[in-house]
Amino acid sequence: MMDCCYIKEVVKGFFSLCTGMRVTMGNVFTRPATIQWPRKAAPLPDRFRGHIMMLANDKTGFPKCIACTSCARNCPSRCITVTGKKPEGAKKKVADRFELDFTKCSLCGLCVEICPVGALDFSRDYAMASYTRNDFAAMDLLQGLGSPFKDA
């Protein structure tokens, strides 16, 4: 049992353990990889895919959406509800209701890609929390945007 090879192996094993311990000690002196969120935040890349949001028309401030419903039809999770009306005198419809069921959305981005007028984009909002899922079951994406129907 106590032949030379055996002892050599034990010694070699012992040194391999020391090597491992050297690595972990080295780790102590490297900069931590973590960021103390929420005091600091990691930079978000440009293509970050948050939940979708509605863009406003630059001129009017109304939603860009023309209520063509192609996003709703193409959404794999069927989580978009959109309706629209023609404001008086306008040629195209404008969305008067655009709801996202964020509890179902898979953040795939098909709706953003499919929109013919580029009305949708990804928001950069990620720290969303709530005590009830209902808060996200019907997110009104038109909120904060102007609307031609407001007075009606």
Partner: peptide, 11 residues
């Protein structure tokens, strides 16, 4: 544990 794993541990 934290510092050996590139973390800070409790802060």
């Amino acid at each position: 544990a934290g510092h050996m794993q590139f973390r800070l541990g409790p802060m």
